[in-house]
Design a protein around this nucleic acid. Structure first.
Lengths: 216, 216
DNA sequence: TGCACTTCTATTGTATACAAAATCACCCCG
DNA sequence: CGGGGTGATTTTGTATACAATAGAAGTGCA
């Protein structure tokens, strides 16, 4: 049996990321308790975690709401994420072993398979993409980096775009990943860093373009 | 009256940072509850915050202990801090106004006064230093950066060195701050970024040198 | 009508009691 | 003696009840 606070965390997180919640909407602990089916104590625990990931925010008077970030703040998020993931890639390049390298290759194969479905299997793609980046983070062997990253990925705003990626963009991701793998295989930290920076920043701009219709 | 969880947070934090706790030492919620004089509920709240700042860590079996980082992890911490504070300085340079600039000047004056005492007033220095960096962070206007920084400053390990700064090192900090202020006044983001990078990395190496005797 | 003041209600904060899980100490059996 | 299991003890997890506080709604007075 999963701990109640973990249940609450996952349910609330899904509630926020999978579209049932609207950015800016108010949340009460009572409501979240109903949604997740556990007591407020555990909900509060879960909310703490979500606060750190900046999926929910607390107003001056301690009331909770679903995070809603301005365009400028989304820019900043991608900038920080690019900095930190690039740094992680550089560290990983120096530390990665053949096992991890092979796992990366196999994950990226899954990712390509997902892209080549018609239509592309976005859920699978996102899942493989997540595992790919997570493994790199693990190879970087930096507990601090591992702690900081969750606040920079999977923001509420991301869901607006997920299903709008074009096949070309999805393919480009796979190509980027291949080049990252090459950089890792060569143990070239600078190369890995550059590729990762481009990879994240390209995703950012794809995001901006495909997301903007939402704001029209 | 301060909220109980805030009381707990401050007391436990002081307990860890001001030398009563030993890195690696085990902590129980019960013990922390006694130390802080509030119930375990509030202690758990406080502990969550401290976990995010990575001042305490949780073992696989959920037991708490005072964080204890390897040399390599301290290096990584300073590297990340240098990256993020430099980024913050660059943003601040583009956004800072005359009011904030003047406050920075006045804080740095306090800092210099503390250094010029005989012996230098370290507590005052650290306090002014903290406010200086905090104000820059505020001027950077990046909620994410603000969220991430606490995990990169005031680590348990820092206290080993605080009182070992030489007057030369303290003075160099004041000089760095002056140059930062100049960069801000000129709204030169690149300049500010470079100065901040040097500032943090110099502190890191001063730390390494003065801290190493502890490890002999 | 406008505005302060005062209930009343909704929401968060805290303590306590109990449940679950992990660790430890001990004992039994090989 | 040593290993494994079993019961006791410590420690963390969760729920519930109640307290404190913030927000909303109403009320009376100028």
């Amino acid at each position: 049996m999963m701990p109640a606070s973990e249940t609450a965390y996952q349910k609330i997180r899904a509630f926020i990321l999978q579209g049932e919640a609207v950015p800016g909407m108010q949340l009460t602990e009572e409501k979240l308790s109903e949604i997740s089916g556990v007591s407020r104590t555990s909900v509060r625990d879960a909310v703490r975690r979500l606060e750190n990931e900046m999926l929910v925010v607390r107003s001056a008077s301690k009331r909770l709401s679903v995070a809603d970030w301005s365009e400028g703040e989304v820019d900043e998020m991608f900038t920080l994420r690019a900095m930190l993931e690039a740094h992680a890639a550089a560290r990983a390049a120096r530390r990665i072993d053949d096992d991890a390298l092979n796992i990366l290759r196999s994950i990226n194969k899954e990712l390509k398979d997902a892209v080549n479905q018609s239509p592309p299997d976005i859920a699978c793609f996102l899942e493989a993409n997540r595992r790919f980046h997570d493994l790199i983070l693990e190879c970087a062997q930096s507990p601090r980096l591992t702690k900081l990253m969750p606040a920079l990925v999977e923001q509420p705003v991301v869901r607006r775009t997920a299903h709008q990626y074009s096949k070309i963009q999805l393919n480009q991701s796979a190509v980027d990943h291949d080049e990252l793998i090459a950089a890792f295989a060569a143990k070239d930290a600078d190369w890995a860093k550059s590729v990762m920076t481009s990879h994240i920043r390209r995703a950012f701009h794809s995001f901006s373009i495909t997301a903007s219709p939402d704001r029209l």
